[in-house]
């Protein structure tokens, strides 16, 4: 009883819970990835991935789609976040809510809505629909973190730069852009990661013509190829871990302050 009265020990149940349901499952992906169907140690799953053109091509293609989606989201989202955080250009808070609102709607519903739009406008489903759908799905996730950092930005820096004679372009490239970088980094993570790992969405947007890496993983798991599926998951984990190192913890700082409610 006295043990539980010490409040720091209250974290113990959660610690055990996390070990069993978060750490252990990740270790299982690792173990399955290096095993064949009989449980013997093997590298076969990885050599299969490298030698099979289909999986490797899908992988490269998915990274390409993710990069394009992320770049388009930055180009569209950065100006929007800038305007939203600028009190002279946008006075109403409701505007911000309108931009964030789609984040709360089921991703499949949003995707079906995109398909409906393309059907309605008699546009063919395919690569164009895929990029549009991805940008449409993840743009709010780019705008929100950038908006958040810009809003907390100390505007006296901008005033100081102007007073010291910087022209508007210099103010932007030397002050606003560097100060908003944590938000951009966080936005890149929040767009790039889901784009590369989604499944189902690409099939719906392209009528099953284009497959992304997430779909390949899901199909293998569904067809009972657990070991190969685990190996592909591990490859995805490595990519994500690498991009997290690249974003250098900036993302974490920004996202910890998130939460709109």
């Amino acid at each position: 009883m006295r043990f539980f009265m010490r409040r720091q020990n209250w974290s113990l149940p959660y610690f055990i819970f996390m070990l069993i349901f978060v750490v252990l499952p990740l270790v299982l992906i690792f173990i399955y990835a290096f095993q064949d169907a009989d449980g013997n140690f093997t590298f076969d799953n990885f050599s299969k991935f490298i030698s099979s053109p289909e999986a490797a091509n899908t992988f490269v293609y998915s990274i390409g789609v993710a990069i394009i989606t992320t770049v388009v989201c930055i180009l569209l989202g950065y100006p929007a976040a800038y305007i939203l955080s600028n009190k002279e250009l946008c006075r109403s808070k409701v505007m911000v809510v309108l931009f964030i609102l789609p984040m709360w709607i089921n991703i499949l519903v949003r995707t079906l809505a995109t398909v409906a739009l393309f059907d309605f406008m008699r546009l063919p489903l395919g690569e164009g629909a895929l990029i549009f759908g991805m940008v449409y799905n993840f743009l709010p996730f780019m705008i929100y973190p950038i908006y958040n950092t810009m809003q907390k930005m100390d505007h006296s820096y901008i005033d100081a730069a102007q007073d010291l004679g910087a022209n508007p372009i210099n103010v932007f490239t030397k002050v606003v852009l560097p100060l908003s970088m944590p938000g951009v980094m966080s936005g890149i993570m929040m767009v790039f990661m889901p784009t590369i790992s989604t499944f189902a969405i690409a099939e719906l947007l392209t009528m099953n013509n284009i497959k992304l890496f997430g779909t390949t993983i899901q199909e293998n798991i569904n067809n009972g190829m657990w070991n190969y599926g685990a190996a592909l998951s591990l490859i995805m984990l490595v990519i994500i871990f690498a991009s997290e190192l690249f974003s250098d913890g900036e993302e974490e700082r920004a996202s910890n302050e998130g939460g709109i409610i």
């Binding site: 499952p25 990740l26 992906i29 889901p194 790992s197 499944f199 685990a230 998951s233 995805m236």
Partner: peptide
């Protein structure tokens, strides 16, 4: 973690 990794694990 991406959702798909959480799901598969």
């Amino acid at each position: 973690n991406p959702d798909i990794i959480t799901g598969i694990s």
